[in-house]
Write a protein that binds this DNA or RNA. Structure first.
Lengths: 232, 232, 232, 232
DNA sequence: CATGAATGAGCCTTCATTCAT
DNA sequence: AATGAATGAAGGCTCATTCAT
């Protein structure tokens, strides 16, 4: 139609993806547009994430991504402005999609602790399901001096905000301590989860990552101190 | 000839540095060797870390490092095998040096909780002192597919081992819970500290990082839960 | 099918355009053919000249021309064999059209000097009217190693021949010196006019180019010398 | 020495060349610096001009120039900022050098007409001597939308200024008409000479270009009109 | 030991051209 | 006839590494 691919690209890079999640009704329609042309946009993005995961962003070449996606090198530039833009789209589209799932998951639970448990379970589940995404996410969120940095920072912030809300609710309903340094707590939790994933990745992803959920929650809530001993 | 330096280099990369710290008697002699040539080895390493911190490893060039160090491009190859080797030396020499300080710090305290507090305080202090090191450390430890990976893994392991020992001691003396998944606990702690540093870096290093020590220890020991059992 | 257009194209590129001007009777019929398709052939050619004028031939892209002409990239290849062919058509069609006007203009005057004046006036008028044509003409006629070179040479030759004829007539009727190196004179005149246009273009086309006609003719006829013989 | 090639490059591109001609005493010294490294700077420039002459600027590749100069592709970037810079240096260094010779030549003659004759003779001589320079000069001075445009314009201006001075002197000493449109006259002369060269180039450089000097001067001074004949 | 000019492999990106729709 | 997505060859440029001085 009139809606060419270049248009589509800007659409995806701009508000398109936002709409994708805010208006579930339209979601299918847009996906169908993207799935035209053999779903090249997604194939390229998926291929890129795989290659980035294996070799790191700077050591990956456009040719490798193209080969992996089964398209010509030049085709990539119909869907992405340049190499950096692929990483950007990864964060604005793919990662964001996952993070919005987290919010849904949190909504399912009533009390704060269960919300936190659901969040972390889903987090581990999704990163376990898409290991390449996990690798790229871990690597890029710990870089500075990245062109995509503003997007990445916003991504992390989104996650931290969810945690903040949960902890505040926990403080309100009395399940969590009130004397907490909130901005520290949220990073404390994110950091612990991140490192758990990081270790799983470096171990080669052998064990079941989701088995870590309950032990993690237990550590978050009770800490490592032998607190009962204080009163025995 | 060339042999002299190459030997020295391998020496530094291997056990040399260990000896450097474990046998203070020899320390001066070796340093004097390295300090020959106007301390070029250190100047280059320091310059490299600064450049890596600012631009990331792959976006840094040998020329930039050479200019920063005040030497010619070719000179770098007298002290380092190649670009990757500079990063490797950063981990085997510079970072390791810091990590060995941690061990000293831990030895100063008696009980487990204070050991942990000392460790983390020193960790935050040193990373705050050398921000460039902190940046490079954060970035590279979260990459995979790095040529220096084995060295980096060993580095992390060293840290995790210290934490393990402390927790085990805490369990022995009753200050820490016995029902802990040890391999999770150590990552949980490292992750939280890492993320705390990470955030400090991204915030531009405005606030005093060491002020986070006590709140962090508190979170580790007591958790975030309102453990009313304490008061029952 | 494809055959139809390809034929038309070769037709236009070959003798078709010649016929267009030599046989006015057929002119309308052929134009009507070209005006089919919303006059796409002309729209593309006009768009191309505009783009070439702004950016130069090699820095212009087919996409830019297509956008300017309001057609798809591929459509251009229905009317032109390739990018070079567009430039070729510019010379065989558009420029030639103008040059034939020159011949008409020359025919209007009786004596040689007035013929020359008419020629140059029309030259400046037409190039002033179509600045893009002027720019492309100036640029391309001073290139060598151009695929369109034979066409361009023929174009210049046509102009030089007109000048030659005028000068020869001038010599015959006594208004021009007989001791002239004819092949030099014609280039001398073309060169001076070209440079006048060139300067006008580089000045941004601010002043009225046709005001240069009489001063130019004066220079051609009388030279710059203070030929006192005139006053004896 | 300390004066590296990068420095030399900037030097040549900046005021260095000016000094080269203003301070003949230093000329040899600088040339000797440039002739170091097997005179790579000049070899590359010469090779580039040859390739540009044969194929045009945009159709020439860095690889072709490098091959012609007998250096590696990357070496070119030690002496030139980028491809455009080669063209720029051609104008600021090579062409300028020739143009300054013109000024010397003009100084040798006493009266205006002889100055003009000397100028044009030297012009034709130099361009005949270095045909590649002539081709590139002709092609690039008639382009617009060139990155090197400001330099080129300045180059032309320099030539036009010389002509202006000569004509003004001619008017002062009575050898040239006073009722001349000076800014037109100078272009009229430059244009005629340019076209003479242009034609010589397109003819393949078969005949002796300098044989055109006297006929050209004759045309400039006396014009093509049969002026004296009227009264003799 | 030190230098830095030289190298050339490799990569990102552009764009003329094709062809299925 | 018209489209424009897809192609992939080609080229400018970078930069790690080498080596003659």
């Amino acid at each position: 139609m009139i809606c060419g691919l270049r248009t589509m690209q800007r659409f995806a890079a701009g508000q398109g993806v936002d709409i994708l999640f805010r208006m579930p009704a339209l979601q299918e329609a847009i996906i169908s547009i993207k799935d035209k042309n053999n779903g090249k946009y997604h194939r390229i993005l998926e291929a890129a994430v795989m290659v980035f995961a294996q070799q790191g962003f700077y050591q990956s070449t456009i040719s490798q991504i193209a080969r992996e996606a089964g398209v010509a090198d030049g085709t990539i530039y119909l869907y992405f402005k340049n190499k950096d833009d692929i990483l950007l789209q990864f964060f604005t589209y793919k990662t964001k999609q996952v993070f919005d799932l987290f919010r849904e998951e949190v909504a399912k639970a009533d009390n704060a602790v269960e919300k936190l448990r659901n969040l972390i379970r889903r987090h581990l589940e999704e990163f376990q399901r898409d290991k390449n995404m996990a690798i790229v996410y871990q690597a890029e969120t710990h870089q500075n001096s990245r062109s995509a940095e503003p997007q990445i920072r916003e991504m992390s912030k989104m996650y931290l905000d969810i945690v903040s809300e949960i902890v505040e609710q926990g403080q309100a309903d009395g399940s969590m301590r009130k004397d907490l340094y909130l901005s520290l707590v949220k990073r404390f939790i994110l950091g612990a989860v991140d490192e758990t994933i990081n270790n799983w990745l470096h171990s080669g992803g052998k064990y079941d990552l989701t088995s870590m959920v309950d032990p993690l929650i237990d550590l978050f809530i009770r800490g490592i101190g032998n607190n009962r001993a204080d009163h025995s």
